[in-house]
Design a protein around this nucleic acid. Structure first.
Length: 253
DNA sequence: ATGGCAAAGTAGCTTTGA
């Protein structure tokens, strides 16, 4: 089975690209989406189901919003982080083909002196704490999404000068997930240098490959040991009207 | 030092993203 994640930066704009991509990637069992930017009553459930998929979603107007599109049944769907009250729709989880899939849109943080940065760190703390319990319930669990963290220096292009997304506290929050048993499956395999999953729309960043690797697939050891590949699919970033993020796909035995 | 691009909400522009 394959699990994938893609920050689509508006599902309203990107729905045709998402359905096309799923058609050309028939082995993808579940695709996690972030930044759907649509309220639940206007979510294109019918179009997705008519194309032969199941879908679970939690959205809001303008910002955030997450969804999981799957070829198999989605069981035990829950929204957000239990015990962490949050108006923003940033997490949706479901069990698909025996794997607990957690789809997350981790806060951006905006700037180190912003309240949004404090929210990001508090949010990450709540995520780790909650997942520690989920890891006990689900041996095979994957956390897929837009983390808004470039974990290491090699995950950011050389000219990235903003401290955001690379600051020590953000990286420590990512490391905490690794320390509690998750594996960054992308790094289990040989990868090209300068592998990124996001490129700014401005300044020909994609053409110059001036990007960041901020979209990740973390897996519990039980699942990570079954991982056979993890790739960033840059092709959608070349499309007309692309998302600024591109999909990441992991294959499991 | 600043804006640069895209999307949304809403109707000329601001806010947010990363």
């Amino acid at each position: 089975m394959q699990l994938a994640t893609w920050n689509v930066n508006s599902l309203k704009i990107r729905l045709p690209q998402v359905l096309d991509w799923l058609t050309t990637h028939p082995e993808v069992t579940a695709l996690c989406l972030q930044e759907t930017k649509m309220d639940d009553p206007v979510f294109p459930r019918e179009a997705i189901e008519a194309a032969g998929f199941r879908v679970a979603f939690a959205g809001q107007k303008t910002y955030n919003g997450v969804a999981i599109i799957a070829r198999d049944e989605l069981d035990e769907v829950i929204v957000n982080i239990p015990g962490f009250p949050d108006e923003q729709k940033r997490v949706i989880s479901a069990t698909i083909a025996g794997v607990r899939v957690v789809c997350a849109y981790i806060p951006n943080g905006q700037a180190l002196d912003s309240d949004k940065y404090q929210y990001k760190l508090a949010w990450l703390d709540a995520l780790s704490t909650w997942l520690a319990g989920e890891q006990l319930r689900f041996a095979r669990l994957a956390l897929l999404g837009d983390y808004n963290i470039a974990p290491e220096d090699r995950d950011a292009h050389a000219k990235w000068s903003d401290p955001l997304l690379v600051s020590p506290p953000e990286r420590a929050a990512f490391q905490r997930l690794l320390d509690q048993g998750f594996s960054d499956v992308f790094r289990q395999f040989e990868q090209a240098e300068k592998s990124f999953s996001w490129w700014d729309y401005r300044g020909f960043s994609f053409k110059k490959n001036a990007g960041l690797r901020i979209d990740h697939i973390l897996a519990t050891s039980e699942l990570a040991s079954r991982c056979r590949s993890c790739v960033i699919d840059v092709e959608p970033r070349r499309h007309e009207r692309p998302s600024d993020h591109t999909p990441v796909i992991a294959s499991f035995e």
